[in-house]
Computed example of a mutant assay.
Amino acid sequence: MTPNPASAGLVLLAAFPAQALDFGLPDAGKGNVYGQLSPVWLSFDDGAQSIGQIVDNNDSNSRIGVLLDWSLDDDARLTFNFETALGFFQSNQLTMQGLDGTPWIDWSTEDIRKLELFARTDAGTFWAGQGDMATYAVAEFDESGTVVAGYSDYQAIAGGFAFVQADGTPSQIVISDVFVNLEGSRRFRLRYDSPDRAGFTLSAAAGNDELNDKPGTYYDAALRYVNDHGRFHMGGGIGYALTEKPGESDSRAVMGSIAVLDRPTGLNTALAAGRQIDGGSYIYAKLGWITTFVPAGQTALAAEYYGSSGIGFEGSGRSWGLMALQRFDRLSTEFYIGYRHYALTGTSTAFRDSESFVFGSRWTF
């Protein structure tokens, strides 16, 4: 398939070095503009047919944001954060029908990631507005350096593709039904984070989907731990989420993850797991190695496995993947490749295996 000219241009932009975009504000405030471009070539083979297309990588999509920060007193700061995706066609939207008439660039209010105020005080951090729920990223602790190529939010790469039954008939089951990490997303919410105590932080939030105009109320809480132990850097967390939607039964889930990096060797491991209360469960594992093969920057290699049972359908899902990433520090750019193999085992239906391949870059400023 011929790449979209706009998306192909993103690859060229990734070659330019980043520039600092800091500026001053009245009353001794300070501001910062930041962002990234994240184009990726995604190909998918469902066992019956295949497709390839340049899209935006939903693992870490193209975005731009601004931070405005003021000191309230010696111990407190007030920050405004606006951040939006750029409206490019996402990797988790692609199907065997391609873009299917959808414009490659189509910004809407659903692309707004953050529109929030937060105050950091001795008593903790208080948040209001569109932003991360308490369990956001609690199942994503990962020290491999390959997150842009793949992590526990498995559906972000190829979540829109449907599995094909053994006889070649497309099913109604898509990757995003089966391969999930159950954590919270971004909502219009109130959130509180406790002060850091020996690496531990407790968070709680309540919110709804104002920007997406979807009825429902979301509540969640999470406990995180991040600290160093000699040569090891460790991070982890566990969370609980409750979703209430009109006309539907309440949805509850627990999820969490842990990741450890051995700094001298670059060896690292990550483990994530979750369970829907009265539903299915999953487990995700990754092994990685960070080293320096070339002076330009670090190289990261990783292998992953995902297994779920009873999520999205009556059966189990299995997947494994390999990924490699090369960083170019002077250009603030990463180039990466990734491969995943997917399999479903149903109680009454057989499915063909499928696979995805990505080659992309991410330029940050």
Rank of each mutant, 00 (worst) to 15 (best):
V174K: 09
G312Q: 06
G307C: 13
L202R: 03
Y306S: 03
N227A: 04
P5V: 15
T243R: 00
E304N: 12
S194Q: 04
F141I: 07
E116W: 00
F89D: 02
A221D: 02
Y339D: 07
A20Q: 14
A259L: 08
I175P: 06
F82V: 06
A324T: 01
L21F: 10
R318C: 07
G312P: 09
Q97N: 15
V164G: 11
A18H: 09
I105W: 12
S281D: 15
D213C: 14
E304A: 10
K245C: 11
G312K: 11
V226S: 10
V148F: 07
E355G: 14
R362W: 02
D353C: 01
A206C: 13
L325H: 11
A241C: 07
F89A: 05
W320L: 02
I258F: 01
S43I: 05
T265S: 04
I54A: 09
L202F: 09
I238Y: 00
T95W: 06
K30A: 14
D193P: 13
E314S: 12
E110R: 11
D56M: 09
D167K: 11
F88I: 09
Q130I: 03
F141T: 03
A85T: 01
A6N: 14
S316P: 09
H229D: 09
Y306A: 00
Y151S: 05
A156I: 12
T345C: 04
Y219V: 12
T79K: 09
N32T: 13
R191E: 06
P246Y: 01
